[in-house]
Design a protein around this nucleic acid. Structure first.
Length: 740
DNA sequence: AGCACGCCGACT
DNA sequence: GTCGGCGTGCTC
């Protein structure tokens, strides 16, 4: 008997050992079915150990082997294994998350085009002995299969119904045999020249051409930051690069933040290349996903377009990875145990494959800009707007110095009037759903709060409910104050729902469209709103960040951010960066056509230095200044962080847990003479209480990523020695992107 | 993560 | 008297 070590889909840094007969064909990365407790589970082989720590009599035997060879390419397996170490996650969780759901459930990895039937020896015997006299059809089918076997023919037309074969299958006289498709080779189409839509191709300007040739000329791995302002033609650069790579018969992976919000780029690719393109969007069925996975792996797809998880697609011959909107937060997995960053993993994957990676953005993350400065990435700048768009004016409206009616300054109202009367559209951004973020008692100041989160409820007027935006709990609106019994309850603050009402009152002659999570919850509602905007039935558009992505509305000439103060003074050190990115994106919505546009920001703090730099000198100047600030503060990207997020029903146990962790790191550094590891906390999370659990954080920071990694790895090895309390759930977030 | 075992409240 | 709530502990 041979030992097999397997990983299971569990948040455990632990493997399990099983036995198998030595003759069985399987490899590291093969899926197997194992008995686990009293259940049957799918596991992935990670090792063939010489011996086991588990007593021999406790070892169970593997039930069956699903794959004779690994379901992962060597290159992908190496990436995932490295990633499990980097993010301190169990390998099982990582491997399973990187597989399509159907494969996690045990489906065949190869694409079976057809199932054919094959007669078994027992079947032949049964036939010879003349059984089945009472089942004519079954006998005929069996006879036919026997003849086919004799003639060495694999497949015979299935003339009989499935039920007939099923009956024979149940008697164990026949077996199902899968026929595997020979992959269609798209590369043959390259000779015919019509694979490329030449009419669609745009002429590149000098900068674009330079960018394309720089990438095409380079060899092996290189990470490029394509830093292009809105409208500078990043997409055309992508398409030219893809053409170059496809021409060589190699595949391309294009990652985008969210397909639903940016369907244009998919259309562009599909229009340009008459080659097999697979788009992995969120409403594919599991079977469709598996099919796409198989097609990419066998080399049948020329291009794969998808979101974060598409990074784990396998290829026959991958030649290029493009990751669009590289600054976008959605590339970081935030909710599962394996909190990976697709951008960072894409860098590793490109490196392992010796291919170029292009990161594109109009507002690159400070991390990527720092990598450019250090020479790790190479910079490609596109700062000419390819479209003849007019100049953009910006204004800061100081809320302190003027009359403000429910969040809207007189100046803003006047500006809106101006733009609307010229027949244009106006767009307002407010990052708060609902009618009002607070409902309070006018007599005593009591605030209606969610007991689960200790956060004020948001009042939704339309449904007349209170909703907690942290845990999604909903309750009825109270008639009375819970403390003094007064019925005089009032709202405070402003959400998009109220903004819509206020504007309807002030501008009764113009249609209003609101786009946020509430207004687009109904299926098709988003499309309907977008249609109203395009046909100009709606002239005033209100939305949260959702509205900022993708969509191009040529008649929008005024864009306003209704309140940016929250972002200027946030606990999160990345909030200014995010505000700047949102500002640029939002500004890109104004005046994209021939009309000149205007962007206004309402704030109580117009003097804020980063804000000033952003508005007067643009995003790159802002980024340089913000980077300097990060450097003096020792914050990322000038240090590496790891965040322990502890959750518990009581504050005490969470604090105790994190204190023990802090003590471990303290002790570990002292004993090993490691200097400069900063331990911040335990501190309460920004969202102290969520869904009835108290949340506390312990932040680790070190100027060297390698040192921090070393500390974390040692911690994982010795975690079990620490006797941590069981009342606390704690997850580790390496390179945290938010502190909620 | 699942799943079972186990110990306390509201029901035929 | 049971059904079922979720706390705790284990799975090679």
């Amino acid at each position: 008997m041979r030992l097999v070590r397997v990983a299971l889909a569990m948040p455990l840094m632990h493997y399990f050992d099983y036995l198998i007969e030595p003759s069985a064909a399987l490899d590291i990365g093969s899926r197997v079915v194992v008995p686990f407790g009293r259940q049957k589970r799918i596991a992935i082989v990670v090792e063939f150990p010489a011996q086991s720590d588990v007593a021999p009599q406790q070892l169970k035997r593997i039930i069956s082997v699903l794959d004779a060879t690994s379901v992962f390419s060597d290159e992908l397996y190496a990436l995932l294994k490295w990633s499990a170490g980097y993010y301190q996650t169990g390998l099982g969780e990582v491997l399973f998350q990187a597989l399509p759901v159907k494969l996690r459930q045990g489906e065949t990895a190869q694409s079976a085009v057809d199932a054919v039937w094959k007669i078994l020896p027992q079947g032949k015997i049964a036939l010879a002995q003349g059984e089945l006299t009472r089942a004519k059809k079954q006998q005929q089918a069996l006879q036919q299969l026997a003849e086919a076997a004799e003639n060495g023919v694999l497949q015979r037309e299935a003339e009989f119904s499935r039920a007939i074969y099923k009956a024979l299958l149940e008697k164990k006289w026949i077996a199902e045999q899968h026929l595997f498709a020979q992959p269609e080779v798209w590369q043959t189409a390259l000779q015919q020249h019509n694979w490329l839509n030449q009419q669609d191709k745009l002429r590149l300007n000098k900068q674009q051409a330079l960018a394309v040739s720089a990438v095409c000329v380079s060899h092996g791995f290189q990470c490029w930051l394509l830093d292009g302002v809105t409208g500078s033609g990043k997409t055309e650069v992508y398409l030219h690069l893809m053409e170059h790579v496809l021409q060589q018969g190699k595949q391309v992976l294009l990652l985008i933040p969210e397909i639903g919000l940016t369907p244009q780029i998919v259309r562009h690719v599909e229009n340009r290349f008459k080659l097999p393109i697979d788009v992995l969007h969120s409403n594919l069925t599991d079977s469709q996903r598996l099919l796409a996975w198989q097609r990419a792996k066998s080399g049948e797809s020329a291009v794969v377009i998808g979101t974060r998880s598409a990074l784990f697609t396998q290829f026959q011959d991958l030649g290029l990875i493009i990751l669009d909107e590289e600054h976008d937060l959605s590339y970081k997995q935030q909710d599962s145990g394996w909190r990976h960053h697709a951008r960072d993993l894409a860098v590793m994957r490109a490196k392992n494959n010796h291919i170029p990676l292009v990161l594109g953005s109009a507002t690159p993350s400070l991390e990527s800009l720092a990598n450019v400065a250090s020479g790790k990435y190479r910079h490609l700048v596109l700062n000419q707007r390819a479209m003849n768009s007019a100049v953009l004016n910006h204004k800061l409206l100081d809320l302190k110095k003027q009359r403000v009616d429910r969040g809207l300054s007189e100046q803003l109202i006047a500006l809106m009037q101006q733009h609307l009367s010229k027949g244009n559209q106006v767009m307002l951004f407010l990052n708060r759903r609902g009618f009002a973020p607070i409902l309070l008692c006018h007599e005593c100041g009591w605030i209606a709060q969610c007991e689960q989160c200790d956060r004020p409820f948001t009042y939704h007027k339309k449904n007349n409910i209170l909703s907690c935006h942290h845990c999604d709990r909903k309750t009825k609106v109270p008639r009375q104050c819970a403390v003094c019994g007064s019925t005089h309850l009032v709202t405070s603050g402003m959400g998009t729902e109220q903004l819509e009402a206020v504007l309807a009152e002030k501008f009764p002659d113009y249609g209003i469209a609101r786009i946020d999570r509430d207004s687009t919850a109904r299926k098709g509602a988003l499309e309907a709103s977008l249609a109203q905007i395009t046909t100009k039935q709606s002239r005033i558009l209100i939305g949260t960040q959702m509205l900022a992505k993708g969509h191009h509305f040529p008649d929008v000439t005024l864009v306003a951010m209704v309140n940016i103060d929250g972002a200027l003074f946030s606990q999160d050190f990345r909030s200014e960066e995010r505000l700047a990115q949102l500002y640029v994106q939002v500004a890109g919505r104004a005046g994209r056509g021939s009309k000149s546009g205007e962007v206004v920001l309402q704030t109580h703090f117009p003097q804020h230095p980063l804000l000033q730099t952003l508005l007067t000198q643009g995003y790159s100047a802002f980024a340089q200044q913000a980077l300097q600030l990060r450097q003096t503060m020792g914050l990322p990207p000038f240090s590496a962080q790891a965040l322990f997020r502890a959750k518990s029903k009581s504050n005490e146990s969470a604090v105790e847990y994190l204190t023990a962790l802090a003590a471990f790191f303290d002790d570990f550094c002292r004993k090993n003479a490691i200097q400069g590891l900063q331990l911040l906390g335990p501190i309460e999370a920004l969202q102290t209480k969520k869904a009835g659990q108290y949340q506390w954080h312990l932040l680790l920071q070190h100027s060297s990523r390698a040192v921090l990694q070393h500390c974390l790895a040692q911690f994982s090895l010795r975690r079990h020695e620490l006797n941590l309390n069981r009342y606390t759930r704690c997850i580790l977030d390496v390179d945290p992107q938010d502190f909620n």
